[in-house]
Structure formats: structure tokens, C-alpha cells
């Protein structure tokens, strides 16, 4: 986007997105007042945060119409980010170092 007239057309969109982000912030706080169960509260809060983040990235950071080299760099970042966020699950789910419970030998008694 470089044309002055083109940018003039986008000014309204910037204000609209700003207003929408504020509304979503209000919804996040309101949802918190409902005292939902923790898993549901996390899901709702993250869905709203991802929506807000996408709006910032797409409109304010102009990612909705960027060059393919930028998308390529970001795709690589997303892949590594997913790996990074998966690390905690590996610590929970791996069995390395977990003691194997071998049944104790039966006590035969006597000396």
C-alpha cells in the first residue's frame, strides 16, 4: 500500500479496528466476571486474544496484503513457535526416566 489516495480510503478502517479491539477487551473482562470453569475460561480468553491479535496483525501491520517473503519468514516462525509451545507437553507426556514399578519379590519367609 503506497498510494496516498489508497491510504485515505483505509483511515476509517483503522479507527473501526481500534474500536473493535476495545469492544473485544470489554468482552474479555465481562467474560471474566462470569467465573467460568478454568478450562472454559482459558478457551474463551484465548479465542478472544487470538481474534484481537489477528486484527492487529492483519490491519495495523498490513499482513493481509504483504509480500510472499514476509509470509515465508513468518511461516517459519510459526513452525518453530509451535515446536516451542509443544515443549511443555513433552515434559508432561514423556516416559523417559519414569521408574518402572517391578513387583516386589514374594517374601518366602524363614531364615
Amino acid at each position: 500500500m503506497s498510494d496516498s489516495a489508497d491510504i485515505k480510503n483505509h483511515l476509517g478502517k483503522y479507527w473501526m479496528i481500534g474500536a473493535a479491539l476495545l469492544v473485544f477487551t470489554g468482552i474479555t473482562v465481562a467474560a471474566n466476571q462470569l467465573h467460568l470453569a478454568v478450562p472454559l475460561a482459558i478457551t474463551v480468553a484465548l479465542i478472544i486474544a487470538i481474534t484481537k491479535g489477528s486484527m492487529v496483525a492483519a490491519v495495523f501491520m498490513h499482513l493481509s496484503h504483504e509480500k510472499k517473503w514476509i509470509y515465508g519468514a513468518l511461516l517459519l516462525t510459526v513452525v518453530f513457535f509451535i515446536v516451542l509451545m509443544s515443549v511443555p507437553f513433552l515434559t508432561v507426556n514423556d516416559g523417559i526416566g519414569t521408574p518402572i514399578h517391578v513387583p516386589a519379590p514374594a517374601h518366602t519367609g524363614g531364615h
Partner: peptide, 24 residues
């Protein structure tokens, strides 16, 4: 929440600063 509102508002003013420059 106040800081969220402040930062979102600053993002709007930042994009407007860039857009204004583009429009001379």
C-alpha cells in the same frame, strides 16, 4: 484493562502517524 485500552489506542495513533506521513 486500563493498560490494554491505552496500548490499543496507541496502536491506532501509531498507524495514523504513518498514514498521515504517507498523505504528506
Amino acid at each position: 484493562a486500563a493498560n490494554t485500552i491505552i496500548l490499543i489506542s496507541s496502536s491506532v495513533t501509531m498507524v495514523m502517524a504513518w498514514a498521515s506521513l504517507k498523505m504528506h
